[in-house]
Nucleic acid binder design. Sequence first.
DNA 1: TGAAAAAATGTACACGCGTACATGAGTATA
DNA 2: TATACTCATGTACGCGTGTACATTTTTTCA
Lengths: 346, 346
Amino acid sequence: MTKRTEVAKLAGVSEATVSRVLSGTGPIKEATRLKVLEAADALGYVPSDIARQFAKKRSGNLGVVLPFMPNVPLFSTFYFSQLLGGIGLAAGERGLNLLLIFRQPGDASPYAGLFRSRKADACIVLGSSGIPGEREALMELETAGYPYAVAGQRFEGLEHRTADGDHAAGSRQTVAHLHGLGCRSIAFVGGPAQYSNSGDRYAGYVEGLEQADLPLSPHIVLEGKYSRKSGLALASRVEELLRSGQADSVYAGNDRMAIGIMQGLLEKGIQAGRDYALAGYDGSDGASMTSPQLTSVAVPFDEVGRQAALRAIGEAEGGIAPSHELMLATRLAARDSTLLYRPGRP
Amino acid sequence: MTKRTEVAKLAGVSEATVSRVLSGTGPIKEATRLKVLEAADALGYVPSDIARQFAKKRSGNLGVVLPFMPNVPLFSTFYFSQLLGGIGLAAGERGLNLLLIFRQPGDASPYAGLFRSRKADACIVLGSSGIPGEREALMELETAGYPYAVAGQRFEGLEHRTADGDHAAGSRQTVAHLHGLGCRSIAFVGGPAQYSNSGDRYAGYVEGLEQADLPLSPHIVLEGKYSRKSGLALASRVEELLRSGQADSVYAGNDRMAIGIMQGLLEKGIQAGRDYALAGYDGSDGASMTSPQLTSVAVPFDEVGRQAALRAIGEAEGGIAPSHELMLATRLAARDSTLLYRPGRP
DNA sequence: TGAAAAAATGTACACGCGTACATGAGTATA
DNA sequence: TATACTCATGTACGCGTGTACATTTTTTCA
């Protein structure tokens, strides 16, 4: 590996000048600049990023902490992949690389350790949940003053670190949409309670019912696991609700569960859009793959990720910590799974 | 930030001893070890990874070069997300972090630059294609002796660097399956020619026809772009082939295109599994979301990614370069989009 | 034209770790 | 008990940059 010394010698200048030319700092006479560049090129010299990082005490990495879930194709979930895409975009814009860290469930050490070991200059936490210890681990970052952001999960007292979609609003939009179609009893299939966005969606559902002047019936509120499988598993209970007339429509907390429900009911001869209205959530690509296509709430998860990253990076580069929660607008994408439904049919 | 000096002083030992204890090298008396650990703990000392990397001249990162495609939700494509998941798994197993590098189309510089700047110890190239310059850029890695692996694309002379599914076999399986159902004219919808796996799938299609003793008709071979949209766009041409009796079944080069075709034809009242047999490729989760569910070839992309990563990492850690191409077995997942089809119906 | 100011370059060292080598403390062998 | 040997620890330095400060060169301005 050629190093700075050789370039300096060949160009007939000092090492400091080489450094200045190649890092673009300090005033340099154009002639010297060219000499140095030529010498560097001739020798195939590229500064060692490792040494640079060491000298500047900055890694140039944006850490992204992801939950490690065996048997779960994490990246293929629309939610994570979109977030990650947006984060990658922001990192690219600011000249940072993305450092992916997989976190074992329950092991919160990566958070502060990431900074203490100087592996990353800023960090984004994805897929965190309300399990014990999680909040404490983040609070450690907070008190230590490390620049970070949480995407997709709210923590009490740390709201200003959060970026997410406005899920309550998304839920209200969905309920209003179903109500507008004539639905009068909307079953809700929520996600695990440990995720704050599950609660947000439920809260929006309740608010939406209120605004539509519909009663809230706890027995038509179910809970799944955000997976297609869990939707499938709930299909028979949903079937009961529909057959008994307790519900004429279903609003599922994400598209995967909605698709599972759609499939499970189809096996029993009950078609979404014909026999009941079905809405999902996330606006994933899967929603356009079903027949009928699935009504869903489009959440700009990529932008959520991007904004979260920009905040953390900005803080790392000397800015100040954000003071308020970031909540991005959602948009209802109405499709045939609800649009085709005509209430009042048997 | 507390550093080694302070720990050494508090523990009453030399800095070298602290280093040895915390990096687990060299023989250490148990008593000293505990003293040092206690002191480090008391001071909250964590060695700087940056300095470690600098001293050892190893970054501890596995670089993953991805194509940057604006407007394409890269991570949510089954193909990439599975590959990435497998790579992440391998990296975790070997104690490396994943460094994601987005490559601008046509800019091959990240490849060798990644090593010259010492950002990564080994690297995996994803989503590369046969465009000019690509092969040369990889050859540069080859001649420089950098440890790398290519997942999902073959290059002449660099086959030993490749890991991929056995797509030709997957295609043969599909054709045999359709033939077994009674299909006699199988249309093929391939992907862009710049990807070697497009060619592999086509080759397998041709071989499968031969083995089934079916003729190869160039006019029932189409080309899409691996996107659902491109499948939709081809639907009318496929319709013609089906209506005219030139084809009784369709084999698409990936699931997304197959789903697009399925949807496009459904709008025209032509149902997969009823009016024609339809098979996709990849074994993506989307294939189970359609109705009827889509027959597809399951490719262990996660294992492809994992194996590619293990090879590159192994080489970086002193092993030797692999000598042969790695090709993983595929498995046909037959579902209703073909199983329900009964040839001979109008 | 000469001094002062500005621009360009050189000198010297810190950054925080790993580790080769030197050294000291035990321990088995004769 | 002297010797050789092993184990445990200390000393000293390199890794390749960035950059504060010193120094030299060029420009400015009266």
